[in-house]
């Protein structure tokens, strides 16, 4: 039983990180109907930003919560800026183009960023343990301080995001734009600016995800975004791409599935879980758990 609970916490923890990344995919898809392939590299760049900033400030193992918070904020900010830049330079000129072309541009940006990071910083760098990790015994279950932090920070961010989307003017504008860019324009909403904001928001969340990811897996590498990115995307599709609550639910489910398969079946098949889930979903319910049915207009 304790093993089960431990796996549960691990799964939710993993899912939380996937959720932070998945939200970026789902919000951009909801707005532009684009699968932002470069999002996984934004995540990766967030990790690098965290690493470089910590290095520049001379923070190493045990630097404390304050340092950690600063690093997280820098990661989020850098990602926001990167995300907005990518949108402005690579995607906005493609607005009138076909979906395939936009997809290819996104793929191009993704490959470019991966190789840029490789050129600039190399591989296999280690992120310092800014906050000392401890384990707590709660009801006989071994709970890592890491998991608590991941779940706690994610929860706070989720609450903040929900408030932003549901209760603020900009959130309303985002929702309007995701329904119809044209009609939103007729309302006087500055559509381009709103889309930029959407990218910034999604990217910042990915940055937070990157920081939390590093807490548990402190390797910084140009390729590190590929797998988590792809899995987060699967999570978004599972939940219904375009749906914010869907992305969160899908991510938690995926995190749990992956952890349980890894724990009870075999860890070598861990990565395949996401793809099997993807295939099953796309074959039986492509609109996902919360998605709207996609109808093709003639």
């Amino acid at each position: 039983m304790t093993l089960f609970l431990q796996q549960l916490i691990n799964g939710l923890s993993l899912g939380a990180i996937y959720a932070l990344i998945a939200l970026g995919y789902t919000m951009v898809y909801g707005t532009l109907q684009l699968i932002n392939f470069a999002h996984s590299e934004v995540f990766m760049m967030g990790a690098f930003a965290a690493f470089l900033f910590a290095g520049a400030m001379g923070w190493g193992d045990g630097a404390g919560v304050g340092a950690a918070a600063a690093v997280a904020l820098v990661a989020m900010g850098s990602c926001a800026i990167l995300g907005m830049t990518i949108e402005r330079i690579a995607y906005r000129p493609m607005r009138k183009s076909t979906r395939l072309n936009m997809l290819i541009t996104a793929i191009g940006v993704s490959i470019f960023l991966q190789n840029l990071a490789l050129r600039l910083w190399g591989t296999n760098l280690t992120f310092p343990d800014l906050i000392a990790k401890t384990n707590w015994e709660i009801a006989g279950v071994n709970v890592a301080s890491n998991s608590v932090m991941v779940l706690g920070v994610t929860l706070v961010l989720m609450i903040g995001l929900t408030w932003l989307i549901e209760k603020t003017k900009i959130g309303l504008a985002m929702r309007a734009v995701s329904h119809s860019r044209e009609t939103a324009a007729l309302m006087g909403i500055p559509v381009d600016r709103t889309i930029s904001f959407t990218f910034a928001l999604g990217s910042a969340l990915a940055g937070a995800g990157a920081f939390l990811f590093l807490l548990g897996a402190p390797k910084v590498d140009p390729q590190m975004g590929a797998m988590p990115g792809l899995k987060a995307f699967v999570a978004a599709v599972l939940g219904g791409i375009g749906s914010v609550p869907g992305a969160v639910v899908g991510a938690l489910v995926l995190g749990l599935c992956e952890t349980f398969v890894s724990g009870y079946v075999s860890s070598t098949w861990r990565d395949a879980v996401a793809f099997c889930v993807l295939i099953v979903i796309l074959l039986y319910k492509p609109s996902g758990l919360f998605g709207k049915h996609i109808v093709e207009k003639v």
Partner: peptide
């Protein structure tokens, strides 16, 4: 990198 840039620019 050149590849990727080429791709984006061409698109």
């Amino acid at each position: 990198m050149i590849y990727a840039l080429l791709l984006v620019v061409m698109m």
